[in-house]
Protein backbone atom coordinates (compact mmCIF):
# COMPACT_ATOMS: atom_id res chain seq x y z
CA UNK A 1 0.00 0.00 0.00
CA UNK A 2 2.69 2.39 1.08
CA UNK A 3 4.88 1.66 -1.90
CA UNK A 4 1.90 2.13 -4.20
CA UNK A 5 1.27 5.64 -2.85
CA UNK A 6 4.95 6.42 -3.20
CA UNK A 7 5.01 5.19 -6.77
CA UNK A 8 1.97 7.27 -7.65
CA UNK A 9 3.54 10.33 -6.02
CA UNK A 10 6.75 9.82 -7.96
CA UNK A 11 4.87 9.45 -11.22
CA UNK A 12 2.90 12.60 -10.48
CA UNK A 13 6.13 14.52 -9.89
CA UNK A 14 7.57 13.31 -13.17
CA UNK A 15 4.39 14.30 -14.99
CA UNK A 16 4.32 17.85 -13.58
CA UNK A 17 7.98 18.33 -14.45
CA UNK A 18 7.27 17.38 -18.03
CA UNK A 19 5.00 20.38 -18.41
CA UNK A 20 7.73 23.01 -18.68
CA UNK A 21 7.33 26.08 -16.52
CA UNK A 22 8.67 29.52 -17.40
CA UNK A 23 12.27 30.03 -16.37
CA UNK A 24 12.93 33.05 -14.16
CA UNK A 25 16.64 32.51 -13.69
CA UNK A 26 19.50 33.33 -16.06
CA UNK A 27 21.59 30.34 -17.18
CA UNK A 28 25.24 30.79 -18.09
CA UNK A 29 27.67 28.20 -19.47
CA UNK A 30 31.17 28.29 -20.92
CA UNK A 31 34.84 28.92 -20.29
CA UNK A 32 36.47 27.86 -17.05
CA UNK A 33 38.79 30.89 -17.32
CA UNK A 34 35.85 33.30 -17.28
CA UNK A 35 33.97 31.21 -14.66
CA UNK A 36 35.53 32.96 -11.60
CA UNK A 37 34.54 36.37 -13.00
CA UNK A 38 31.13 35.33 -14.20
CA UNK A 39 30.23 33.71 -10.87
CA UNK A 40 31.40 36.75 -8.92
CA UNK A 41 29.13 38.99 -11.01
CA UNK A 42 26.26 36.50 -10.73
CA UNK A 43 26.56 36.51 -6.96
CA UNK A 44 26.62 40.31 -6.71
CA UNK A 45 23.68 40.47 -9.10
CA UNK A 46 21.71 38.01 -6.96
CA UNK A 47 22.50 39.99 -3.81
CA UNK A 48 20.72 42.95 -5.36
CA UNK A 49 17.58 41.03 -4.42
CA UNK A 50 15.47 41.80 -7.50
CA UNK A 51 16.35 38.65 -9.45
CA UNK A 52 17.40 35.12 -8.68
CA UNK A 53 21.12 34.44 -8.76
CA UNK A 54 22.09 33.15 -12.23
CA UNK A 55 23.27 29.55 -12.50
CA UNK A 56 26.80 29.31 -13.94
CA UNK A 57 28.22 26.10 -15.37
CA UNK A 58 31.87 25.70 -16.24
CA UNK A 59 31.82 23.65 -19.44
CA UNK A 60 34.87 24.97 -21.29
CA UNK A 61 34.59 27.45 -24.16
CA UNK A 62 33.87 24.81 -26.82
CA UNK A 63 31.30 22.93 -24.72
CA UNK A 64 29.61 26.21 -23.82
CA UNK A 65 29.31 27.20 -27.48
CA UNK A 66 27.72 23.84 -28.31
CA UNK A 67 25.08 24.26 -25.61
CA UNK A 68 24.54 27.93 -26.42
CA UNK A 69 24.09 27.29 -30.13
CA UNK A 70 21.79 24.30 -29.78
CA UNK A 71 18.62 26.37 -29.84
CA UNK A 72 16.30 29.11 -28.62
CA UNK A 73 14.00 28.46 -25.70
CA UNK A 74 14.12 28.05 -21.99
CA UNK A 75 15.99 24.76 -22.01
CA UNK A 76 18.97 26.44 -23.64
CA UNK A 77 21.45 28.77 -21.92
CA UNK A 78 21.15 32.56 -22.26
CA UNK A 79 24.82 33.47 -22.04
CA UNK A 80 28.06 31.67 -22.82
CA UNK A 81 31.50 32.69 -21.57
CA UNK A 82 34.47 32.34 -23.88
CA UNK A 83 38.20 32.74 -23.54
CA UNK A 84 38.47 33.21 -27.31
CA UNK A 85 36.25 34.72 -30.00
CA UNK A 86 33.38 32.72 -31.39
CA UNK A 87 34.39 30.95 -34.63
CA UNK A 88 32.55 31.12 -37.95
CA UNK A 89 31.70 27.42 -37.77
CA UNK A 90 30.15 27.96 -34.32
CA UNK A 91 28.20 30.91 -35.68
CA UNK A 92 26.90 28.73 -38.50
CA UNK A 93 25.83 26.06 -36.02
CA UNK A 94 24.04 28.76 -34.03
CA UNK A 95 22.24 30.10 -37.10
CA UNK A 96 21.20 26.59 -38.14
CA UNK A 97 19.44 26.14 -34.79
CA UNK A 98 17.71 29.51 -34.96
CA UNK A 99 20.12 31.42 -32.71
CA UNK A 100 20.45 34.50 -34.91
CA UNK A 101 20.76 37.50 -32.60
CA UNK A 102 24.01 37.39 -30.62
CA UNK A 103 25.63 40.21 -28.68
CA UNK A 104 29.35 40.02 -28.01
CA UNK A 105 30.87 41.64 -24.92
CA UNK A 106 34.63 41.81 -24.44
CA UNK A 107 35.14 41.90 -20.68
CA UNK A 108 38.88 42.40 -20.29
CA UNK A 109 42.17 40.61 -20.73
CA UNK A 110 43.90 37.56 -19.40
CA UNK A 111 47.53 36.58 -19.61
CA UNK A 112 48.86 33.10 -20.13
CA UNK A 113 51.87 32.41 -17.99
CA UNK A 114 54.39 29.65 -17.55
CA UNK A 115 54.83 28.99 -13.84
CA UNK A 116 56.88 26.77 -11.63
CA UNK A 117 57.04 26.18 -7.89
CA UNK A 118 58.66 28.78 -5.65
CA UNK A 119 62.10 27.50 -4.77
CA UNK A 120 62.60 25.88 -8.15
CA UNK A 121 64.88 27.34 -10.83
CA UNK A 122 63.86 30.76 -12.16
CA UNK A 123 62.95 30.57 -15.83
CA UNK A 124 63.69 33.43 -18.22
CA UNK A 125 61.94 32.32 -21.38
CA UNK A 126 61.14 33.51 -24.86
CA UNK A 127 58.26 32.37 -27.01
CA UNK A 128 60.80 30.83 -29.36
CA UNK A 129 62.16 28.69 -26.53
CA UNK A 130 58.65 27.69 -25.42
CA UNK A 131 57.92 26.66 -29.01
CA UNK A 132 61.09 24.62 -29.24
CA UNK A 133 60.31 22.97 -25.93
CA UNK A 134 56.70 22.01 -26.58
CA UNK A 135 56.05 21.72 -30.34
CA UNK A 136 55.74 18.25 -31.79
CA UNK A 137 57.97 18.76 -34.83
CA UNK A 138 60.57 21.48 -35.12
CA UNK A 139 62.89 22.49 -37.95
CA UNK A 140 66.47 21.37 -37.45
CA UNK A 141 69.01 21.80 -40.23
CA UNK A 142 66.43 22.68 -42.87
CA UNK A 143 63.78 20.04 -42.30
CA UNK A 144 61.07 19.19 -39.79
CA UNK A 145 62.06 16.49 -37.34
CA UNK A 146 60.35 15.13 -34.21
CA UNK A 147 61.32 17.40 -31.34
CA UNK A 148 64.81 16.26 -30.24
CA UNK A 149 65.19 18.46 -27.13
CA UNK A 150 65.25 16.59 -23.84
CA UNK A 151 66.32 19.28 -21.40
CA UNK A 152 66.01 23.07 -21.30
CA UNK A 153 69.76 23.56 -21.63
CA UNK A 154 69.67 21.74 -24.99
CA UNK A 155 67.60 24.61 -26.35
CA UNK A 156 69.69 27.39 -24.87
CA UNK A 157 72.70 26.98 -22.56
CA UNK A 158 71.41 29.83 -20.38
CA UNK A 159 68.38 27.77 -19.38
CA UNK A 160 68.44 25.34 -16.41
CA UNK A 161 69.86 21.85 -16.89
CA UNK A 162 66.51 20.27 -16.18
CA UNK A 163 64.43 17.88 -18.28
CA UNK A 164 61.60 19.54 -20.21
CA UNK A 165 58.30 18.81 -18.49
CA UNK A 166 55.35 21.13 -19.06
CA UNK A 167 51.85 20.63 -17.65
CA UNK A 168 49.28 22.37 -19.80
CA UNK A 169 45.53 22.51 -20.34
CA UNK A 170 43.86 19.88 -22.54
CA UNK A 171 42.43 20.77 -25.98
CA UNK A 172 38.91 21.42 -24.57
CA UNK A 173 40.30 24.52 -22.82
CA UNK A 174 40.26 27.96 -24.42
CA UNK A 175 43.59 28.46 -22.68
CA UNK A 176 45.08 25.72 -24.83
CA UNK A 177 43.76 27.36 -28.01
CA UNK A 178 45.28 30.62 -26.87
CA UNK A 179 48.61 28.97 -26.08
CA UNK A 180 48.77 27.58 -29.61
CA UNK A 181 47.68 30.86 -31.15
CA UNK A 182 49.84 33.21 -29.07
CA UNK A 183 52.97 31.18 -28.36
CA UNK A 184 53.36 28.35 -30.86
CA UNK A 185 52.03 30.04 -34.00
CA UNK A 186 54.02 33.30 -33.87
CA UNK A 187 57.26 31.58 -32.88
CA UNK A 188 56.76 28.85 -35.44
CA UNK A 189 56.08 31.21 -38.32
CA UNK A 190 59.37 33.00 -37.67
CA UNK A 191 61.33 29.82 -38.47
CA UNK A 192 62.76 30.15 -41.99
CA UNK A 193 61.96 26.51 -42.81
CA UNK A 194 58.26 27.04 -41.96
CA UNK A 195 57.94 30.23 -44.00
CA UNK A 196 58.48 28.24 -47.17
CA UNK A 197 55.49 25.94 -46.48
CA UNK A 198 51.96 26.49 -47.77
CA UNK A 199 49.14 27.47 -45.42
CA UNK A 200 47.80 24.01 -44.53
CA UNK A 201 51.22 22.51 -44.01
CA UNK A 202 52.14 25.51 -41.86
CA UNK A 203 49.09 25.01 -39.69
CA UNK A 204 49.83 21.33 -39.32
CA UNK A 205 53.46 21.94 -38.45
CA UNK A 206 52.81 24.74 -35.99
CA UNK A 207 49.81 23.64 -33.95
CA UNK A 208 50.75 20.16 -32.75
CA UNK A 209 52.23 19.75 -29.27
CA UNK A 210 54.65 17.05 -28.21
CA UNK A 211 53.29 13.62 -27.47
CA UNK A 212 56.50 12.09 -26.12
CA UNK A 213 55.81 12.96 -22.49
CA UNK A 214 57.44 16.39 -22.30
CA UNK A 215 54.04 18.10 -22.56
CA UNK A 216 51.47 16.60 -20.21
CA UNK A 217 47.82 17.44 -20.68
CA UNK A 218 45.76 18.16 -17.60
CA UNK A 219 42.07 18.20 -18.33
CA UNK A 220 40.71 18.87 -14.83
CA UNK A 221 41.57 22.37 -13.66
CA UNK A 222 44.37 24.77 -12.73
CA UNK A 223 44.51 23.49 -9.15
CA UNK A 224 45.65 20.12 -10.46
CA UNK A 225 48.36 21.80 -12.55
CA UNK A 226 49.49 23.73 -9.49
CA UNK A 227 49.71 20.54 -7.42
CA UNK A 228 51.75 18.81 -10.10
CA UNK A 229 54.31 21.60 -10.36
CA UNK A 230 54.55 21.97 -6.57
CA UNK A 231 55.48 18.30 -6.43
CA UNK A 232 58.19 18.81 -9.06
CA UNK A 233 59.81 22.28 -8.81
CA UNK A 234 61.64 21.91 -12.14
CA UNK A 235 58.41 21.31 -14.07
CA UNK A 236 56.55 24.17 -15.73
CA UNK A 237 52.79 24.70 -15.83
CA UNK A 238 50.83 26.72 -18.38
CA UNK A 239 48.09 28.55 -16.56
CA UNK A 240 45.92 31.67 -16.65
CA UNK A 241 47.24 34.82 -15.00
CA UNK A 242 44.31 35.25 -12.64
CA UNK A 243 45.40 32.10 -10.86
CA UNK A 244 48.87 33.22 -9.76
CA UNK A 245 47.60 36.32 -8.02
CA UNK A 246 45.85 34.10 -5.44
CA UNK A 247 48.78 31.75 -4.90
CA UNK A 248 51.81 34.02 -5.00
CA UNK A 249 53.38 32.26 -2.02
CA UNK A 250 53.60 28.91 -3.80
CA UNK A 251 54.28 29.61 -7.45
CA UNK A 252 56.39 32.00 -9.56
CA UNK A 253 55.89 33.07 -13.15
CA UNK A 254 58.56 32.86 -15.82
CA UNK A 255 59.30 36.02 -17.80
CA UNK A 256 58.29 35.81 -21.45
CA UNK A 257 60.38 37.67 -24.07
CA UNK A 258 61.88 39.60 -21.16
CA UNK A 259 58.57 40.83 -19.71
CA UNK A 260 57.14 39.80 -16.35
CA UNK A 261 53.40 39.18 -16.36
CA UNK A 262 51.58 41.74 -14.23
CA UNK A 263 48.36 43.75 -14.34
CA UNK A 264 50.25 46.64 -15.93
CA UNK A 265 52.22 44.74 -18.56
CA UNK A 266 49.20 42.72 -19.69
CA UNK A 267 46.84 45.71 -19.84
CA UNK A 268 49.37 47.74 -21.83
CA UNK A 269 50.00 44.86 -24.24
CA UNK A 270 53.70 44.69 -23.36
CA UNK A 271 53.39 41.13 -22.12
CA UNK A 272 53.26 39.11 -25.34
CA UNK A 273 50.91 36.31 -24.36
CA UNK A 274 47.63 37.97 -23.48
CA UNK A 275 44.18 37.53 -24.93
CA UNK A 276 40.76 39.13 -24.60
CA UNK A 277 37.93 37.36 -22.75
CA UNK A 278 34.32 37.45 -23.93
CA UNK A 279 30.80 36.50 -23.22
CA UNK A 280 27.98 36.09 -25.74
CA UNK A 281 24.33 36.87 -25.10
CA UNK A 282 21.36 35.35 -26.89
CA UNK A 283 19.30 38.42 -27.86
CA UNK A 284 16.16 36.36 -28.41
CA UNK A 285 16.18 35.52 -24.69
CA UNK A 286 16.44 39.11 -23.49
CA UNK A 287 12.69 39.57 -23.41
CA UNK A 288 11.98 36.01 -22.27
CA UNK A 289 14.14 35.50 -19.20
CA UNK A 290 13.94 38.33 -16.67
CA UNK A 291 17.12 40.09 -15.65
CA UNK A 292 19.40 39.60 -18.65
CA UNK A 293 19.71 43.34 -19.35
CA UNK A 294 20.26 44.02 -15.66
CA UNK A 295 22.94 41.33 -15.50
CA UNK A 296 24.72 42.98 -18.43
CA UNK A 297 24.45 46.31 -16.65
CA UNK A 298 25.99 44.81 -13.50
CA UNK A 299 28.81 43.21 -15.47
CA UNK A 300 29.64 46.35 -17.43
CA UNK A 301 29.46 48.73 -14.46
CA UNK A 302 32.68 50.50 -13.48
CA UNK A 303 32.48 49.05 -9.94
CA UNK A 304 32.62 45.60 -11.53
CA UNK A 305 35.05 45.59 -14.42
CA UNK A 306 36.65 49.01 -13.97
CA UNK A 307 40.29 49.49 -12.98
CA UNK A 308 39.31 49.21 -9.30
CA UNK A 309 36.30 46.97 -9.72
CA UNK A 310 35.80 43.74 -7.84
CA UNK A 311 36.71 41.60 -10.86
CA UNK A 312 40.21 43.05 -10.72
CA UNK A 313 40.46 41.58 -7.21
CA UNK A 314 39.59 38.23 -8.78
CA UNK A 315 42.43 38.59 -11.30
CA UNK A 316 40.77 40.13 -14.37
CA UNK A 317 42.86 42.63 -16.29
CA UNK A 318 40.66 45.59 -17.07
CA UNK A 319 40.35 46.77 -20.65
CA UNK A 320 41.42 50.35 -21.49
CA UNK A 321 38.84 53.05 -20.60
CA UNK A 322 37.72 53.78 -24.17
CA UNK A 323 37.23 50.10 -24.93
CA UNK A 324 35.20 49.56 -21.74
CA UNK A 325 32.98 52.47 -22.61
CA UNK A 326 32.37 51.15 -26.10
CA UNK A 327 31.67 47.60 -24.87
CA UNK A 328 29.31 48.84 -22.15
CA UNK A 329 27.32 50.85 -24.69
CA UNK A 330 27.19 47.84 -27.00
CA UNK A 331 25.97 45.62 -24.16
CA UNK A 332 23.31 48.14 -23.20
CA UNK A 333 21.91 48.32 -26.72
CA UNK A 334 22.35 44.57 -27.31
CA UNK A 335 24.29 45.33 -30.47
CA UNK A 336 24.64 42.65 -33.10
CA UNK A 337 27.82 40.61 -33.35
CA UNK A 338 30.14 41.79 -36.12
CA UNK A 339 32.78 39.31 -37.21
Amino acid sequence: MLSRTLAVAALAMVATAGAAQARDQIRIVGSSTVYPFSTAVAEQFGKGGKFKTPVVESTGTGGGMRLFCSGVGETFPDITNASRRITTSELEACAKNGVTGITEVMIGYDGIVAINAKGGPKFVLTRDQMYKATAKDIPVGGKLVPNPYKSWSDIDPSLPKEPILVYGPAPNHGTRDAYVELVLDPACEKQPEIKALDKDAKKKACQAVREDGAWVEVSENYTVIQQKITANPAALGVITFSYIDQNADKIQAATMDGVTASFETIASGKYPVSRPLFFYVKKQHAGMVPGIKEYLAEFTAEKTWGKEGYLVDKGLIAAPDAQRKEQAANAKNLGDLKM
Binding site: K52, T53, V56
Partner: peptide
Amino acid sequence: IGMVAFIVD
Protein backbone atom coordinates in the same frame (compact mmCIF):
# COMPACT_ATOMS: atom_id res chain seq x y z
CA ILE B 1 22.56 17.13 -16.59
CA GLY B 2 23.99 20.45 -15.49
CA MET B 3 24.12 19.94 -11.73
CA VAL B 4 27.83 20.77 -11.62
CA ALA B 5 27.22 24.50 -11.53
CA PHE B 6 27.64 27.60 -9.42
CA ILE B 7 24.33 27.90 -7.58
CA VAL B 8 23.94 30.43 -4.79
CA ASP B 9 20.24 30.28 -3.95
